[in-house]
Design a protein around this nucleic acid. Sequence first.
DNA 1: ACACGGATACTA
DNA 2: AGTATCCGTGTC
Length: 204
Amino acid sequence: MLTKEFFERHPLTCATELIGCQLVWERCSGVIVETEAYAAVGDEACHTFLRRGAQRFVDTHPAGTAYIYLNYGIHWLVNVLIKGGGSNGFVLIRALEPRTGLEKMSERRKLDDPRQLCSGPGKLTQALGIPATFHGSNLCHDPRKSFHAAVPAESAMGIVQDVRIGISRAAELPWRFLAAGSRYVSKAPTRQASALDRSILPGA
DNA sequence: ACACGGATACTA
DNA sequence: AGTATCCGTGTC
């Protein structure tokens, strides 16, 4: 299980390393194939830029806390708080390749195609059955509600970086990360996507 | 292409 | 109070 220390690094480091890791929620799990990084300072797309409560959330919670919010009045989106690595922020979990509990996911999503179960941030929250009430709780305490390290085959998987999706401010930052070639992402990489440039990562 | 839908943060 | 905005999905 990934511990708090994992999330006490730069948001970009966490967002790239989470690709290939597993997100486990009770009986359901999947391999993370798409993430986005948000920085609490200097990133106008981060909630901390406009929402007073978001900055307070960062100040009053430890690394690894779930930040779950309602978007467009319909969809709950799951982020993980990144804190203590010099630059605070969040990683949005955008898509999973389902691994266990597919029947339960299909029941919640009311469809069967494995590629449509978790291929989007709102979809995966619904498929795993993560409740909004988990907002503010920590994802490093209970192994059944946590992240798990990538197996070697998946950590060796290539990573593609691209611009983030659905935002209006700071839309040019290439802070969306995808498992190369994955058929389970929310949206295929755009033309400006490229192989991960590790020089963007602190300490690289 | 477009409707759906509610929390948050502004204006008065 | 009312308005603008928002890290999306399913169906038209």
